[in-house]
Amino acid sequence: MFKTFKALRANGVMGINERNVAYVAALNPRKFLARVDDKFLTKKLAEPAGIPVPELYGVIENARDMKRLEEFISHPDGFVIKPAQGSQGKGIIVVEGPLKGGWRLASGKRIDLEGMKFQINNMISGMYSLGGQPDKALIEYRVKFDDVFGKVSFRGVPDIRVIVLKGIPVFAMLRLPTAESDGKANLHKGGVGVGIDLATGRTLQAMQHDHFIEIHPDTAHPLEDIQTPFWEDILLMAAKSYEVTGLGYIGVDVVLDREKGPLLLELNARPGISIQIANRRGLRFVLDKAMALGDEKKSPEERVEIAKTLSDAAPVKPAMIEPADA
């Protein structure tokens, strides 16, 4: 046990405690947290800064707004309803399109107007927000995801998580939904995480449930060496989100839309640490190097260039599959 502890330390693997104390608490001023915790605010700040976001169809905050629900959702291509302050993808309803007087959900189930109103009421009464505060429900454009990841996704929308330290992208990962994760790309629900090389945007190795894997568990498609399109744009979006939020340590979640290219889905002030397994290396050394190279005066473009030089900071575990319980 102590040997494992020492080995993980030597490899620069970061735990939740360190993330909370040394990065989240130290670099993310509390007064700015609302900018990422409230997705409505994130959207309003990101758009003028040149970061594309999914189009907002409407916001429901109270019963009066609810009367306009049918107007907000009159989009044949479907839409997404999400609590503005939800976390970890909780409470998100993805509607694919109308179905026999109701609507078809991405999960394949059907929902009627009453059911939808009930869910929205839950959202605005704070069921998914921290501490149960009153919330807003956002109704927005449903992303039609790029086919590039079609073969390695099972339903749902794959997204790209970039960890950004003081405006410098440091770690990136492709998150793929699986049958087990019910179309959600969250890793703790059984989604697949695939490391992405910051310099090239090509996928590296993959993981599911904290174990290394090589192929997608549902589609059996190999996960390595897939080129992420618009990689430069994605890095730039991630870098720019520093100016938008003022937060020094964030996770930037980007989706690839078939028509609109990369869109900022949400920001996270407490990004998870499983990304280390997907990249097969610890965060600490990369973060240390980025911290040393970082400079408040550098432009987002310059910071993207720095990001591409970071990959040599930490040793990468060999790509060979090691069963985690060996």
């Binding site: 735990g15 405690n17 397994i277």
Partner: peptide, 20 residues
């Protein structure tokens, strides 16, 4: 304990794949 930034016991197990 509030300034403990080391790994948690269950994280040893979680990140076992990264220990060599």
């Amino acid at each position: 304990m509030g300034r403990y930034t080391g790994l948690r016991l269950l994280e040893l197990w979680r990140f076992k794949a990264l220990a060599s």
